[in-house]
């Protein structure tokens, strides 16, 4: 099956956007997951709900809020535009940000679970061996949460590949600029006689998503084996 130029461009852009969104959200997700897993503070329930909001909010609403905030006339967007000449709306970076927000709750969930599975007494033991906090985090906490990092990243990545509503609202559907696989599918399906083109893109999406999920399972298994040994 040969891919058409439109499909190739949408596929490459989707991968680029998904990768960017994963890279943006991973450090924030690690920090938020760690705080939610290890700290108790007033308003924790509120933070937890806020993190999960994109999961239940209509994606269009998220895209609209992004436009309000980061659009050329938005609060932050106007400042970015005037100070740096940067505009995020209707760019592939904007699509990446929209996808990052949509995938964020999934990422935090997976990472948080893996942090909660780590015995904090191991970290305390490392402190008594002379290691400062930052070193303990790098050498004990981070390696032990690797299965969750992999799982969370792939979930976020896959969610970004499938993101449609927020992306099309905030970044638009410009072929070669912001037209990802889902928006290409939407466009094809809107055109008379585009059913076959739409089906091809749908199959392509399924293949990519399956590859990501299977790949992550293999990586996560390998990580668990390095940590705990055996055939888990």
């Amino acid at each position: 099956m040969m891919l058409t130029p439109v499909e190739i461009s949408a596929l490459l852009l989707s991968l680029k956007v998904a990768l960017l969104s994963t890279v943006i959200s991973l450090p924030v997700a690690i920090a938020v997951a760690w705080i939610l897993a290890r700290k108790s503070f007033p308003g924790k329930v509120l933070v937890d709900s806020l993190v999960h909001l994109p999961l239940v909010l209509p994606p269009v609403a998220v895209g609209y809020l992004l436009l309000l905030g980061l659009g050329r006339n938005g609060i932050i967007g106007a400042w970015l535009d005037q100070t740096f000449g940067i505009s995020l709306a209707f760019t592939w970076v904007g699509a990446g940000i929209a996808a990052a927000i949509m995938g964020f709750p999934l990422m935090v969930r997976a990472i948080r679970l893996s942090i909660e599975a780590i015995d904090p007494r191991l970290e305390r033991a490392a402190r008594t061996l002379g290691a400062p906090r930052s070193h303990v985090f790098r050498t004990i906490t981070l390696p032990l949460m690797m299965p969750g990092l992999i799982g969370g990243s792939v979930l976020g990545f896959a969610r970004a590949l499938g993101e449609f509503g927020a992306t099309i609202t905030f970044a638009g559907n410009i072929p070669g600029v912001t037209q990802t696989l889902p928006s290409a599918l939407y466009t094809a399906q809107q055109m008379p006689g585009g059913e076959f083109a739409a089906l091809r893109i749908a199959i392509l999406s399924i293949i990519i998503a399956m590859l990501a999920l299977v790949g992550s399972e293999i990586l996560a298994r390998r990580a668990r084996r390095t940590i705990y040994g055996g055939d888990t």
């Binding site: 015995d119 007494r121 191991l122 305390r124 033991a125 490392a126 402190r127 008594t128 061996l129 002379g130 290691a131 400062p132 050498t139 004990i140 390696p143 032990l144 390095t226 940590i227 705990y228 040994g229």
Partner: peptide, 30 residues
Amino acid sequence: LAPNKRRIGYVFQHGRLFPHLSVEANLLYG
């Protein structure tokens, strides 16, 4: 003083060995 500044070794009731490291890497950790 922070625990890592006290220069006190601690052997716990259950070893608390680091599961992702070899025995040798555990021994050399500190």
